[in-house]
Write a protein that binds this DNA or RNA. Structure first.
Lengths: 150, 150
DNA sequence: TACAACACGTTATTACATAATATTTCGCTC
DNA sequence: GAGCGAAATATTATGTAATAACGTGTTGTA
């Protein structure tokens, strides 16, 4: 099987999963929301909000930034998309939602390329640190800048 | 000793330390840079760049945003200030620079209040995760959103 | 059908950040 | 202390990110 076919399959999986998540939580994956999600999936990496505006607009219809932001907010609330604060951009959240694991987005400081890793070990260590800081709960997402190997 | 006096003392310590760090690394803590640093120290929390513009300007002289950004860049490079990407703001970096510890900024999702904690345990766990992600080095800073107790 | 909640469109505004370029200040040498 | 080069700061302009405010349409439901 070709790499392309593999990726296509992976894309379909993500789309299907998004559909399931929404169905199970009584959320409406409207056309615009799905188009935004699909665009993020196909890009394979972080994409800026205004970039999404351009990509989902055409000659006939130009989407307003706020439309994209609303779709992104929805997808984030649904746990399907994660915002990269350091890059002002948005990426698909991969992987099965393991409640006990921390979802770490490693971001290459130079290229902006991202790799997502789940770690319950980090989750536990962060929980301890949070307690020390007087925090009772922490986000299951975090973002760490670094340098990718080669 | 009063709380106020304690805080004053803490402020002086930070200022002194900033001075030392710069001296030891042949960096110039110019008036503007020091004013920016001092303002961050005195605020006791995260401050936005444009907020700093306002606070450090007066009737006679209005500083340009780029002036503040340059000072902030300098202070960040020197390891004295940390940028909170989730808040688009900047905070003092406390504590002695322990190379092996991760500096974690816990940010209250509601108020934006921050607490800094250093943890070598988190550092180690993140290093492992980074390796898994194909990253050869990671920033010693990270930011985690959460909910502060009470 | 009517109504309530949600989604989307439109317009405008605010905030954040940097590019390009000019001017001042600092530290040094003669 | 006059002149020079480098660093720091000022000025202006522009680009990008995000949200506010308000109106209209759509959907699900009693």
């Amino acid at each position: 099987m070709s790499t392309k076919a593999l990726r296509k399959e992976e894309e379909d999986n993500l789309l299907r999963r998004a559909d399931d998540v929404c169905r199970q939580n009584n959320l409406r994956l409207t056309p615009i929301r799905e188009r935004v999600y699909r665009e993020l999936v196909q890009s394979g990496g972080p994409v800026g909000a205004y970039d999404l505006v351009d990509r989902l607009s055409n000659e006939k219809k130009r989407l307003a930034p706020v439309t994209i932001y609303r779709a992104l907010d929805f997808l984030r609330d649904a746990g399907l998309v994660h915002r990269l604060a350091t890059q002002n951009s948005y990426v698909i959240s991969h992987g099965q939602p393991d409640m006990n694991a921390m979802k770490i987005m490693f971001v290459d400081a130079k290229t902006g390329e991202t790799v997502e890793v789940h770690s319950s070990e980090v989750a536990e260590a962060v929980r301890k640190a949070a307690e020390q800081a007087g925090f009772k709960s922490v986000s299951p997402f975090m973002e760490v800048e670094g340098e990718i190997a080669q």
